[in-house]
Every structure is written in structure tokens, then in C-alpha cells.
Amino acid sequence: MFKGFIRLQSHCRGAISVCKVCPRHQHFRGLRKYSSALTERKRFYQDVSISQGEGGLYEVNLDRRKLKTPSGTLFTVPNEALAIAVATEWDAQKDTIKFYTMHLTTLCNTALDNPTQRNKDQMISAALKFLETDTVCYRVDEPPGLVELQKNEWDPVLHWIENRYNVTIGSSSSILGPEIPEETKDTFRQHLSSYTLWSLTGLEFVIAQLKSLVLSLGMIDRHLSVEQAVLLSRLEEEFQIQHWGNVEWAHDYDMYELRARTAAGALFVHLSSESSTIKQKLMQD
């Protein structure tokens, strides 16, 4: 069905103007909602460019058509850097569009459409929920090698975040995890409320990837690089790899995917909170 339509579309492109294709387009967009992220479509455009639209928001253009989100609203991002990064993702697609490699586009779509219809408070609560089961707070009792590795690698990050935010988190090897005081959560809640909806979307994505609020904040506060954060998040797996060997199609595959997703999330947080600093500078001048 999709293939048939794309063929029709490319066949028509020369003959009729873009507007005339639009009714078909609407129909198609309705269908696209149900296609999964793993679906690949043929690359139907040649040039990718960006332009600045109303309100100073940036848009991405595929040939002469404007990029839209899955729900059909116009795709707009707050600054040039993000627009260029998204445009580069679209430009990087060779014959087929592989949506599962376009993490920044996906994040922008999520922020624009907000498919789960949540507000900031709900997103902050969801992010804080990870603190109760944070990767770096759960320790093992055996084997001794892993116990020591977790202590050596995770304790410094934990101490860093406790000093940075002046909170108590702690670690535990009990199945219930450490007891995290309410004040700690309040401090983080207050800190996260300064984030915009966009940066929260990115942060929540990063936390879900790393399974850790501590590592995510460590990376976003520039204490850790993406590679370090991913390594710490996969510490037990890395330990097992050292014992049993590395399997490229599983371990490396997972690691690169995790790195790509984490980097995309971190960059998204950085770029979507950047616009406000630029505005401040302009006002000062």
C-alpha cells in the first residue's frame, strides 16, 4: 500500500504541483500513525534545507515541502543548531528513510506532539520515579570482583551528585534499595522545574536509556561524557563481557544504540535550553 503510493507520488511530482498532491497527503498521514518506527520508507526527496518561519522558529524543508510531525502539525524547532542537526539526519538517509536512526527528529516530534499529553509536573514525577530504582544505587553482594568494580566506579559519581545538589541518596544491596529522603526528591523536583517542556522530554529520554537519574544529571551537568555515562550504566554487562567474551551482534550493537540514543537526548537537552541564553545575550547588547 505504502509502496504503491510512493510510486504514484514520485510519478506525479513532475506533472502536478505540490498543492494538488495535498489531499492524498492528508489521507496518507492518517495511515502513518500506525506505522512503527521500524518501517522504512523510500527517500522521496533530494534536498534538505532549513528556513526561519513565523515567530523566529526554524522549519525543515524536504525539497519544497515542509516537514511535519506524525500528528500533522508543522515541524518547528526553537533554534538553528537543532534545525541543522535534524536536517542532517534527514540528509543522512540514503535510499530508505530509517526512522530508528533519527533520534533527534524523534525527540522533536515527541516534544511537539506530546503524544502522552502530560504536563511538566507529571514528567518531573516520572523522571524522579527512576531515582527510587536508580542503577547506581543498587549494588550486588557477589561476586567480589563486581562488588569492588561497582564501588570504585559508581561511588565517585554518587558522591559528586550528593555534593553538587547537597542531597543524600546512598546505595544499598538490599532488594528494596536505599531509603531516599523526601528532601532529596524535593531538591530535584525544584531543580527540574526550571527545565522547559522540551528539555524535560530530552532528560526523561536519557534517564530511560541509562536507567539512572544520577548518571543522566551527571552527563547533562557535564561531569560525565556520553561514553562514560553509557559505560557506567552498563557496568555489570561490561564485567560479564570481560569474563565471557564480547559478542559483536549483541553487545556492541546494544552499546552503540545506547550511546546514540543517550547522546541524542543529551544534545537535545543542551540545544533546547540554549535558546533562552541566546535571547539574554541579545537583550544585553
Partner: peptide
């Protein structure tokens, strides 16, 4: 971070 994103992807 951007370099990591491009290379990992």
C-alpha cells in the same frame, strides 16, 4: 556529544 551521536549512529 554530537560527535558521539554521529559515530554511534
Amino acid at each position: 556529544t554530537y560527535l558521539c551521536l554521529l559515530a554511534s549512529t
